[in-house]
């Protein structure tokens, strides 16, 4: 029986009249955990509670077997935190900053310096480590932020929007880094992100919050298994004619975004190609609908603006 990474039992936290976290109970095992939810869902409050920066009004928490309320420093010594916002001292070099944060986390000076070199190499900043942080690009700053979070080799990291502001290649590189981090044994992370697609490729567990409540938690595979069944078609050509054709073949297509979803009994894909041939369109993609964290999330959260009626 593996020890739970994070345990939350009946935790509530209220600010004035707002209940930021409401009787929340979850248990997460070591691994890569996606923490997702809209603004105001309680993600931030939960991270603060887990870091021991806030005390819950009721309930109790455990992080790596420590109680953050009773032993906040014990918990914070074992976790790393990568904030969303800029947090780097521009007057230091990359190596100086990361080594300093290592010492602040409790590493002896020599160990902190050697670890700082290692983690800066890990995040791909080996060449730029002696340059001042004020000269760094957005992507380099994100890497330094990650490096300082892992300099003391914590078994758990909280990563807040690590891909924010990165361009496509920068984002892909950051995700690749996080994948590499997740592959290391005994290195878990909690990834808080608005880009659910990123969480899809990265996380094996997910915790979804909405208005302080948990709306889903657990292994991604188990959660999204219940969402299968449909097929997805993407075509190039006249969508309306193709839809009409599908209807004639007795199918009930649902156009969504830029794809078409349709229930297909096994072995009946032929009808799709027949419709395409009749409508003169190209079938660019045909496959089972892949359930995603994003799909699950949007299915369980109420949208403030109604989706289009199409």
């Amino acid at each position: 029986m593996p020890v739970a990474l994070i345990e939350v039992n009946g935790v509530s936290k209220r600010f004035g009249t707002v209940e930021a976290v409401s009787n929340l109970s979850v248990e997460l095992s070591p691994g890569s955990i996606g923490l997702v939810g809209p603004n105001g869902s309680g993600k931030t409050t939960l991270i603060r509670l887990l870091l021991g920066l806030l005390s819950p009004d009721s309930g109790n928490l455990s992080v790596l077997g420590c109680d953050p309320q009773r032993d906040p420093l014990g918990v914070r010594g074992q976790v790393g935190y990568m904030p969303e916002h800029d947090c780097l001292s521009p007057d230091l070099s990359g190596i100086g900053f990361v080594a300093h944060m290592g010492r602040v986390s409790g590493l002896p000076k020599e160990v902190a310096i050697s670890r700082a070199h290692d983690v800066l190499e890990f995040v791909g900043l080996a060449e730029e480590r002696y340059r001042k942080i004020r000269e760094y690009s957005v992507g380099m700053r994100q890497r330094v932020k990650l490096a300082q979070a892992i300099v003391h080799d914590p078994p758990l990291c909280f990563l807040d929007e690590p891909t924010a502001g990165l361009d496509p290649s920068g984002r892909e590189e950051m995700l690749e880094l996080l994948r590499a981090l997740g592959r290391l044994p005994n290195h878990s992370f909690v990834l808080s992100t608005h880009l659910l697609h990123d969480a899809d490729g990265l996380c094996d567990q997910v915790l979804m919050l909405d208005a302080g409540h948990c709306i889903a938690s657990g292994p991604v595979r188990e959660l999204i298994a219940s969402h299968e069944g449909e097929s997805v078609i993407r075509i190039q050509g006249d969508t309306d004619r193709f839809l009409a054709s599908l209807l004639q073949h007795g199918l009930t297509p649902k156009p969504m975004d830029r794809e078409i979803r349709v229930e297909l009994a096994p072995g009946t894909t032929r009808a799709v190609f027949e419709s395409a041939a009749e409508a003169g369109v190209q079938v660019r993609y045909l496959g089972r609908s892949v359930a995603t964290i994003e799909g699950l999330f949007l299915a369980r959260v109420e949208l403030p603006v109604p989706e289009d009626p199409t």
Binding site: L51, G77, P83, D86, L88, S89, M101, V104, Q148
Partner: peptide, 16 residues
């Protein structure tokens, strides 16, 4: 430290 927000890093560490 408040200006460049590095203070949030200090306080996320084992530091009161």
């Amino acid at each position: 430290d408040v200006g460049d927000r590095s203070i949030s890093l200090y306080l996320s560490r084992p530091i009161r």
